[in-house]
């Protein structure tokens, strides 16, 4: 009886591969790492990050463009940009030569802190269910199919007897961050108005609003897809009991 030789799995191939992988990684990460020529502000050394933050604050002091300052600070990757600004302002305050810098840093810290707090408060307010919302006199129907967003909440707010009725829209992306630049359209039988989120960044980057004419029914589209129809200004009563036109507060979230 002839016994066939036992076949061994080709482990030697695997050991060679592993050996090669290790050798390659040692070469590329330790011996000859690629020469880094282009980095972002987050990769800067400590003192340079400080200077970058300071320049952001000085530019903000001149332009008062909070959105731009926020975007620049985000490049530094600070876990808490407000705290980083505040502590740098404290350090600058210690020297009489850097009072201007301290003021600019503190001012940006204050503005950014207030903005972030208001954004958080807005998101909380909009996400709070309104038990009275369903009794609103204006029915709103969702009509969109294959839409990138869905209506998560709707409320009729009754702020003041003098204020005209508005549709106030908040749009959040998949990560539930306010999303700027989303194209919106409100169309009625007579006209169509196009607008987008982000035009009132002091409210929220994902916020947009448009005045409603009482008695006119509108259809709301987001990114060209119809989302709601029968949107109308609705009558309501203020806390003081005065009759008023209410504003529709609509919260849309991105579909997953």
């Amino acid at each position: 009886m002839i016994r066939e030789p036992e076949r061994k799995p080709p482990l030697f191939l695997l050991t060679g591969l592993v050996f090669g992988l290790l050798l390659g990684l040692v070469l590329t990460w330790l011996v000859w790492p690629p020469r880094v020529t282009e980095v972002g502000p987050a990769n800067l050394a400590g003192p340079y990050r400080t200077q970058y933050r300071l320049m952001t604050a000085l530019a903000f002091a001149a332009s008062t463009d909070l959105g731009r300052a926020q975007a620049r600070l985000a490049l530094l990757g600070d876990s808490d940009p407000v705290r980083a600004l505040s502590s740098q302002a404290q350090e600058a305050l210690a020297s009489s030569d850097t009072q201007r810098e301290a003021r600019a840093l503190a001012s940006l810290a204050d503005e950014l802190g207030a903005y972030l707090a208001s954004m958080q408060a807005t998101a909380e307010a909009v996400n709070t269910p309104n038990p009275g919302g369903q009794t609103a006199s204006t029915p709103i129907e969702a009509v969109g199919e294959g839409a990138a967003y869905f209506l998560d909440d709707q409320q009729l707010t009754c702020e003041s007897a003098e204020a005209p009725p508005y549709v106030k829209i908040f749009i959040f992306d998949l990560k539930r961050n306010p999303q700027a630049g989303v194209q919106l359209a409100l169309s009625s039988e007579e006209a169509e108005a196009k607008f987008s989120t982000g035009q009132r960044p002091e409210m929220s980057p994902g916020y947009a609003e448009y005045p409603l004419t009482p008695g006119v029914a509108y259809t709301l589209s987001i990114q060209g897809i119809q989302m709601l129809s029968g949107l109308q200004a609705a009558a309501c009563q203020t806390e003081e009991g005065e009759p008023a036109w209410g504003s529709w507060l609509l919260l849309f979230n991105a579909e997953e």
């Binding site: 591969l17 290790l22 390659g24 880094v36 990769n43 050394a45 340079y48």
Partner: peptide, 25 residues
């Protein structure tokens, strides 16, 4: 036998996931 592994690792280490600079000027 190690040659293919080395080639893969060199590509990975230089192109896919190169080390990033920290404390850069």
């Amino acid at each position: 036998r190690g040659t293919p592994g080395t080639v893969i690792a060199v590509y990975y280490g230089w192109a896919v996931r190169p080390i990033t600079a920290a404390n850069a000027p």
